[in-house]
């Protein structure tokens, strides 16, 4: 259970990205977070694993107050929360395998890093993760040599290395074409259904949210505009979230 209480984030330049957001997300839910650019989707996701420190409010996950955690505690919390990004955030010059294994660093002795050493069982685990996302043959390639969709799957494999209980996906398909988008979303759906991971995924397209999520949270100017099942979003609600002139487009 992830519980967000009165979360507010004000950036140093005075921009209020989140305004008193409260949420409860039970384990195993697939939650889509939608809204316009700048509505606070990324900030909300990044507050959960504290890549961004919230200004006010609390985030409690399975009874642990994430917002109060020290650096050491935070690392232990973070390694149970996977995250994938719009720009994939892979080290482009490094091999796919290294990129995937680097997802396991939170579990490894930091001294290993000095010698660029990974135990062999982590290599096996990384190969298994790559197999799961369907690109084991790319392990030796440089990350930059892969297509966008493949890079995002490497990102998922890297998150899998953490053996996460929750997955944060920040616009995971915004840089991808529609067909690739669906393949990436299907992998997230698989993790949600098979492994029971809680998935929080910010999306631009409502159609994707409708296709994959159990629940839609719409943000507008840092506030929750809608919170409910995707099927309940009719044209009025849609205009409420995206503005009067918006037209819904389908992505197939």
């Amino acid at each position: 259970m992830l519980k967000i209480e009165n979360l507010t984030k004000i950036y140093d330049n005075g921009f209020k990205a989140l305004d008193n957001v409260s949420l409860e997300i039970p384990d195993g839910q697939f939650v889509a977070i939608i809204g316009l650019s700048g509505s606070g989707k990324s900030t909300l996701l990044r507050c959960i694993n504290r890549l961004i420190d919230p200004t006010e409010g609390r985030i409690i996950w399975n009874g642990i107050d994430i917002t109060a955690a020290t650096d050491d505690e935070l690392r232990l919390i973070r390694r149970r929360i996977g995250m994938i990004f719009q720009q994939f955030n892979l080290v482009k010059r490094a091999s796919v395998l290294t990129n995937v294994m680097s997802g396991r660093l939170g579990y490894l002795n930091p001294v290993y890093a000095l010698f660029n050493y990974f135990p062999s069982k982590e290599r096996d685990r990384a190969m298994k993760a790559l197999t799961r996302v369907g690109i084991p043959e790319k392990a030796r390639n440089r990350a930059s040599a892969l297509s966008g969709g493949q890079q995002q799957r490497v990102g998922i494999a890297r998150a899998l290395m953490q053996e996460p209980e929750m997955m944060l996906a920040d616009e995971p398909v915004a840089s991808l074409d529609p067909a690739t988008s669906h393949s990436v979303m299907k992998y997230l759906e698989l993790l949600n259904k098979e492994d029971g991971l809680t998935v929080l995924c910010s999306l631009h397209f409502l159609s994707l949210a409708r296709a994959y999520s159990d629940r839609v949270i719409a943000l507008k100017d840092g506030r929750i505009e809608y919170d409910g099942p995707p099927s309940d979003i009719d044209d009025d609600r849609f205009r409420q979230i995206y503005g009067e002139e918006a037209v819904e487009v389908e992505i197939h």
Binding site: R75, R80, L105, L114
Partner: peptide
């Protein structure tokens, strides 16, 4: 981007810098 990604996995500062 990679720094953010590795920080989000729970890697410490040394590991983040190395990888």
């Amino acid at each position: 981007g990679p720094i953010e990604a590795l920080e989000s996995t729970g890697a410490n500062r040394l590991q983040t810098i190395m990888y």
